[in-house]
Design a protein around this nucleic acid. Structure first.
Lengths: 110, 110
DNA sequence: TATTTATATTGCAATATTACGATAATAAAT
DNA sequence: ATTTATTATCGTAATATTGCAATATAAATA
């Protein structure tokens, strides 16, 4: 127990869950928003933008990277980060699919 | 420790995180997809659609409800469920905002 | 080469999540 | 009133997540 029963779900369901879960933390939302705000790569200094210790930020960045939501490339002794469209496109499709249904639903019930 | 430091983040960041986190489980993705598939309210019998025990499903439904992603109303001794546009609209806006940036980003870096 | 700067990893404590059996609560049906 | 069907809650075990201090690693620079 305690473990999510991924085996019983489809690959798509598990993949979407991983993406949403990665976004599901305020620090990681803040990272995404910051990358958007500066409107370019960020080479270093994400740590100073967040109210968390450096190892904690490093961990959050790792999770976003593993999920395919950000990319990081070495630039000297710093790392350049930006959003990774791969992850975002996958989850975007899901929300478009949900949205299409929500429009229908209005005249159906509830 | 172990607790997310919500105080240090904005209400918007925390709210988006709660929504994404609620979606971030394959069982809850499956529930959303099922509600869309049948294209109407579901009065009862969500349990039989999922490979999980009844108390576990009940718990997942509760989480989706708390996050504002589904609505449930009593219909006799069963409960009618359908998607709640409130929650989905909030997170939809976030992804539209991200998407707008991703189109810009293409010519900027990385 | 020693030092500084930036990021990652390790180890650990506190807390949260997941899952389910047992049981309760509720409402329809008999 | 009793039974049946449906959903919720409680209690608990297993595991995951969050956060940070300490430490390691890697590149730039003095």
């Amino acid at each position: 127990m305690g473990t999510t029963k991924t085996i019983h779900f489809t690959d798509e369901q598990n993949e979407l869950a991983i993406l949403a879960k990665a976004i599901g933390h305020p620090a990681r939302i803040a990272i995404i928003q910051h990358l958007i705000k500066v409107n370019s790569c960020i080479c270093g200094d994400i740590v100073n933008e967040l109210p968390l210790a450096q190892p904690t930020v490093s961990q959050h960045l790792k999770e976003l990277k593993n999920a395919g939501l950000i990319k990081g490339s070495f630039e000297g002794n710093a790392i350049c980060y930006c959003l990774d469209e791969n992850g975002f496109n996958k989850i975007k499709n899901f929300f478009q699919y949900v949205d299409k249904h929500l429009e229908n639903q209005k005249n159906q019930c509830c």
